[in-house]
Structures are given as C-alpha cells and as structure tokens.
Design a protein around this nucleic acid. Structure first.
Lengths: 215, 215
DNA sequence: CGCGTGAAATTGTGATCACAAGAAGATCAT
DNA sequence: ATGATCTTCTTGTGATCACAATTTCACGCG
C-alpha cells in the first residue's frame, strides 16, 4: 500500500513504474489473467530489471497481481467466492470510512462530489470503461479522505486494486446508462447529515454492482 | 500479503527471509522504530542485497515496515490515531471472520482453541511476551481459518503485522496475569452457537487491550 | 491431426558492482 | 560548550550478468 513518504519531485524509478502500473490495474486498464514479465516492463518503462522486479513484487505483495508457483506474474482472475469476499470487505471498510467522513462533509465537499458525478456521466456518454472506473473511485476516495483514517483508506484501496481487472468486466455487464443512483443517495445523505442513510447508501453502492459479477 | 502460491519445499531466498522477518515483526520480536538495512539483513540471513531488498520492500508494501523519505527502513512507531484505526479495522474484519467461522466451528476446533489457550497460560507463566503474542494470534487465526475467507484473513494479518512491534509494548502495560477472559467467552459462544455473543466477545477482545496503548 | 520429445528461447532469481545520497563523526571557530 | 562545516563511512538504487528453470516452438511419428 502507499504508506511511505517520499515527497521529492524525482521519485525512484521503481516508484514511478509502480505507481503507473498500480493506476492501470486499479482502473481496469488490464484484463484478468494478463501476464507481465520483468523484461517486458523494463522495455515499456525504459528501466532495467531491478526496478521492474521491485514494482511487480510490490504489487504482488498488495494483492494487485498474482504470482504463480514458477514466479510468473499476472493480473488476478477472481473466483466468485473471492469477489464476494472483496465486496464484503468493501462494505465493511467503506461504510465505516463514510461514517467517519460525515462530520467533515461540508458543502465544498458535496459540490466536489457532484462535479465528479458529472464526470461519471461524461465517461458513460463516451462509453469509456477506464474513465468510468477511475472517476467512480475518485468519488469514493474524495469522500473517504475526509474520514482522516489513512490506514483504513489504504485497506480500501488495496481492495480496489485487487478488483481492478475484474471491474472492467463489470462495466461491460452493467452497460451503464446513467450515473449510479446510490451516488445521488450518498450526496443526499451527506447534505442531510443522515448517518444511517449514508451507511445504507454506501453499502448498497459498493455491493450492488459486484453482485452482477458472480455467475 | 501472503497470496502467492509456492508450495515447493525450497522457496526462494527472498521468500525465506521475508517469512522470517514477517514472523518476527508480527509477534512483537522487534520494537517500534528499530532500523533495518539491506546489508544488515544480508549478513544476518546470509544472502546478497537482492533478496534482502526484495524482502524489506515487500514488508514495506504491506505496512509492516515504514520507509523514510531517504529510503531508510524501520519498524513503525504508531500514533494514537493509527492505533485506534487499526483497532477499529480489527473489530470490523475479525468480527465478520468469526461470524463466518461459526457454522464450521465444531468440537474439534473448540478443543483446539482450548489447547491454544493453555499455551497462552504457559506463556504468561514464563513471562514470555513474544510467545504470548504468537499464541494469541494463533488462537485467532485458527478460528478464522474456518471462515474460509482468505482475502479477509489476509487483511486481518496485515493489520496484525502493522501492530506487531506495538503489541510488545501492550504486553508490558497489561502485565498479564491470566488468559484473557474474552477468549473464554469466545469459546463459550462457539459452543452455544451464539452469533451475537461471539461477535461481541471478538469485538471486545480485539479492542479492549489496544485501548490501553493510547496515552 | 494430435501427441510426444527435444531444442531453443524466454523467464525469474541472485550476486556483484558502481555510484549517488545521506548520515555520522570529527574538527574548528565563536 | 555549542554550532557549523567538512570528511568519511554507510546506505540505497539501478544496471548488468550468469545461471537455472520454465515455456514455447518445431519436428517427427502414429
């Protein structure tokens, strides 16, 4: 998870590669089961094997990538059981994060969330799955940052990371036509300071879609 | 987290080092703020810098170790806020794990848990903090394995890992005289098939002690 | 056409080295 | 005695290479 502090403008090569791969995986820009190699990553990002290996190993440690018995690395193909577990984890962690964010959810934040929802509508209009996933996660992250609970947010992001490649399939199945209604309910509950309503809306939002992935 | 499958009897050097360090950290065998270096790890485990670096980087990715802006690695020194967050995460995840374990908690498991509690009493009698922490976590892990939710168990273990160095301090403050009463309550609730009682006992067990760490 | 075998290519792991950066220690000046 | 500066030592990062293991491909046979 992103715990280390390294605010310098020129981070290490491995850090750079790690962040780019992480973003790509989290936003569903990679399909489940896709293989990655050290030499392939080295070529793509113009680095040697050492930072490539560090990056891949780090993502494996976070569950974003899986490693076979022979050390080969690929994006995970999640079983139904795994998807259900990760959905349950999202429900547990994100509902708590939303509750903790509520006391600091003022109008500026609510307006920011509404703006992000507009971006979701744009991604839907463009039929852009990666853009949709990215903007959806931005919506949640923006809210949860107000919880001021970095350990929990890190855990939530770890779950998003593991779900990333699978989320792409979800988008295809939902064939989104409009912004998820639960986002509107989340925003309403924030405006009203309605904690039970907020918890219910977040739980519904994070679990409803994932149910459709289980075949 | 321990997600990759590598059942071969001779794992990689980096995997070996990683597991040993991970166990040491999780069981409170290292104090908060303790520094580790690549060359130091290399000497101690008789490996070169490459597996040493891989192991440390992996533990950093899991939050077990922290990395400074200059790349130096050490065990984390947790703030009160961080401790509260991790306790809350334990409560969220472990309560859910216990619930999911209940349907498969038969007499053999219950007897196993009682045996482990006897080991806890031994560790207390020996005034052995590391043994105490290890046996306590064994108690929880043994129960949660029955939940058959590896993603959740991995998350729980990640939290234990982050708390490891701090747990050592907790042991000092509690000055344990007897096996935690909540373990007895957990066992009773399992025998009775009492889910609400089990949830309450687990929540109390995982949060009560950690409250004493917050000064 | 499919399967098996062998060879070649590709892969991951670990060691080593060079280099840059940071930390620690020593010395000098106020 | 304390602070600043300089030097030395230690550290982390990345590149490269060797080697073992795995995978892929090609060819031959049934």
């Amino acid at each position: 998870m992103l715990t280390q502090t390294r605010p310098d403008p020129s981070p290490s090569a491995h850090d750079r590669v790690y962040r780019m791969l992480r973003t790509r995986i989290m936003h569903g820009d990679m399909a489940p089961g896709q293989a990655l190699t050290l030499r392939g990553i080295g070529r793509e990002f113009d680095v040697s094997m050492t930072p490539a290996r560090e990056s891949l190993r780090r993502l494996v440690a976070e569950g974003a990538l899986t490693m076979s018995a022979s050390g080969r690395v690929s994006t995970p193909e999640l079983s139904n059981e795994r998807i259900e577990e990760l959905a349950a984890l999202r429900a547990l962690i994100e509902v708590e994060l939303a509750s903790r964010a509520l006391p600091r959810a003022h109008m500026a934040l609510i307006e920011r969330l509404q703006t992000i929802n507009t971006g979701l509508a744009d991604a839907i209009a463009r039929q852009d799955p990666v853009g949709y996933i990215r903007t959806n996660l931005e919506f949640h992250r923006t809210l949860y940052l107000r919880a001021q609970a970095p350990a929990m947010l890190a855990m939530a992001e770890t779950v998003w990371l593991q779900l990333g490649p699978t989320m792409r399939m979800l988008y295809g199945r939902l064939r989104h036509k409009e912004v998820p209604q639960y986002h509107r309910l989340i925003i309403s509950a924030l405006k009203a300071g309605d904690e039970p309503g907020l918890r219910l809306a977040v739980r519904s939002d994070v679990t409803q879609g994932l149910k459709m992935l289980q075949t």
